[in-house]
Each structure stands twice: as structure tokens, then as C-alpha cells.
Deep mutational scan, measured.
Amino acid sequence: AREMGVIAAMRDGFGFIKCVDRDVRMFFHFSEILDGNQLHIADEVEFTVVPDMLSAQRNHAIRIKKLPKGTV
């Protein structure tokens, strides 16, 4: 199932999404941004959540798609 959120932080090559449906900041890597979009803080996005290979306690966001403002 796809989830929605807002870009909360951007770093060098990765960032975090503030999720709508869960009280966490979800890690993502820039390589998972679809359509070659440039994302910025406060952009609204949808994404798929998958378990982190390195840590069973953590998840991360993949297949991130920018949404029109006002969607979330």
C-alpha cells in the first residue's frame, strides 16, 4: 500500500519524510525519487514502505513520487 507524507529533511544523497499515517520520520535515498523530480523540504510525496535490510526495527521509503500541493 502506498503512503503519503511531507519531506521533512534533506541531506547529501538522502532525506526523511514525515509520514501522515505513522508517527515516524521515514528515511529515503535520492535514488528512490521517481520521474527525476527535485524534491525540497515541505514537498508532498507518496511512497512505498519496505523493511530496512540492515535493521529489522527500521523501515525506509522507496518509489517516491512528488504530489501536487494540497494532496496531503
Rank of each mutant, 00 (worst) to 15 (best):
Q38S: 12
E44H: 03
H29L: 06
M10T: 04
E3A: 08
F14K: 07
M53S: 12
K18L: 05
A61R: 00
P68G: 05
G70T: 02
L67S: 05
A42Y: 08
I41G: 01
N37L: 11
D23E: 11
R58N: 14
L54R: 13
T48V: 06
F30G: 03
E32M: 05
V72T: 08
R58Q: 15
I17N: 01
A8Q: 13
G36W: 01
L67I: 05
D21S: 12
V72Q: 03
F47P: 03
L67Y: 00
T71H: 04
V72L: 13
D43G: 02
C19S: 08
Q38R: 10
V6D: 13
K18D: 14
V45R: 02
I33C: 07
E32R: 03
E46V: 02
K66S: 03
G15W: 01
E3L: 06
M4L: 10
E44I: 04
F30W: 03
M10L: 15
K18Y: 12
V45P: 00
D43A: 02
L54A: 14
E3D: 07
H29G: 03
A42E: 15
K65N: 10
D21M: 09
G15F: 02
G13K: 15
Q57A: 12
L67A: 02
F16E: 13
L67E: 03
D12E: 14
N37V: 12
E46R: 00
D35S: 10
S55R: 14
V20M: 15
D21Y: 07
Q57E: 14
E46N: 03
G70E: 06
D52E: 09
R58M: 11
R63Q: 14
I7F: 04
A61Y: 12
A42R: 09
F14P: 01
I41E: 12
G15N: 00
I62L: 02
H40S: 14
G36E: 08
F27G: 06
R22P: 06
I17W: 00
A56K: 11
T71Q: 07
F16G: 01
I33A: 05
F16C: 08
K66D: 00
F28G: 00
L39C: 06
L54E: 14
M4R: 11
Q38M: 11
A8S: 12
T48Q: 06
E46W: 02
D12T: 08
A56S: 14
V49L: 07
G15S: 01
I7Y: 02
I17K: 00
Q57T: 11
R25S: 13
F30P: 03
A8H: 13
V45G: 01
H40W: 06
P68I: 06
I33P: 00
I41W: 02
E32P: 00
I17T: 02
L54W: 11
K65P: 03
M26P: 05
A42C: 14
K18Q: 14
D23W: 01
A8W: 08
V24L: 13
Q57K: 14
R63T: 04
A1H: 02
A61N: 07
K65C: 05
Q57W: 10
D21C: 04
L39I: 07
N59C: 15
M4T: 10
H40E: 14
A8T: 14
D21Q: 11
K69L: 06
K18N: 11
I41M: 07
F30T: 11
E46F: 00
